[in-house]
Design a protein around this nucleic acid. Structure first.
Length: 255
DNA sequence: ATGGTCGGCACCCGA
């Protein structure tokens, strides 16, 4: 059972990439972020032709999330209960014996801005909600673009990505640690300890060629699923293709 | 630290 998270940065532009990658990688479940598509424009027919069901919550221009799965999704939930707003950043569904939560965490722009404050509020609301979600669904997978690099191994240059910098700041990392403290584990780190493995590279400065990246796309698993994680990785291949997303798919395999 | 590159959409904003 392969489960992946991929920020596609516009599904309108990236549908051919997604189709090619689904054929090549053959995941069972995929969480997509930044689809940037209103629901009536979601390419569910094209994805069904490849054997995937789709559930989605999108909007024009910004944000937008979706879950693709080979098995039919049940009990679909849009948004973060108790924290209503316009931005389409969360979608959840039950697939087989797994509860899947797909998040597009607020970027936060810069430390100290209003968007940064909103990021921390949003993460606090997610934590309150996931505490309940874990009680209801012991087999929980929380995946997505977290827009937080968990620690120094997850940034190419800790001198740049330091405790006062967006995506690596002390408060953001503390918020992520609070999520993990609910009883969630970073699937990738269960199996790999080395640094320098990234999921996002800025479009500028030839960052991908120079591997100047961050690992901000994560797949978290609950305690009950911990021992079922048999493989994990980041598939850099689609980042090498023409006109790529700035993110690569991050994946885990469950037994 | 700055400036650089994308996508969407409208000549600028968000990432």
């Amino acid at each position: 059972m392969k489960i992946a998270s991929w920020n596609v940065n516009s599904l309108n532009v990236r549908l051919p990439h997604l189709e090619q990658w689904l054929r090549a990688f053959a995941p069972d479940i995929v969480g997509l972020q930044e689809t940037k598509l209103e629901d009536h424009k979601f390419p569910d027919t094209a994805l069904a032709a490849l054997g995937y069901r789709s559930v989605f919550s999108g909007q024009k221009t910004y944000n937008g999330v979706a879950i693709l799965s080979r098995e039919a999704p049940r009990d679909v939930l849009v948004g973060v209960p108790g924290f209503e707003h316009e931005q389409r950043r969360a979608i959840s569904a039950t697939i087989g014996d797994l509860r899947i939560v797909n998040l597009y965490v607020v970027n936060g722009q810069d430390v100290g801005t209003g968007k940064y404050a909103f990021k921390l509020e949003w993460l606090a609301a997610v934590r309150r909600w996931l505490a309940e979600e874990l009680r209801a669904h012991p087999n929980l997978v929380v995946l997505g673009d977290f827009n937080i690099a968990p620690d120094e191994r997850d940034v190419h240059d800790p001198a740049v990505w330091h405790e006062d910098h967006i995506l690596s700041s002390a408060a953001e990392r503390a918020a992520l640690r609070e999520l993990l403290a609910l009883g969630l584990h970073d699937g990738y780190r269960l199996l790999h300890q080395e640094g320098g493995v990234f999921s996002w590279w800025d479009y500028r400065q030839a960052a991908f060629r120079r591997n100047l990246g961050l690992r901000i796309d994560l797949t978290l698993v609950s305690e009950a699923l911990r021992c079922r994680v048999v493989a994990a990785g980041i598939d850099r291949e689609p980042r090498t293709w023409e006109r790529p997303s700035d993110h690569a798919p991050a994946w885990i395999e469950l037994s």
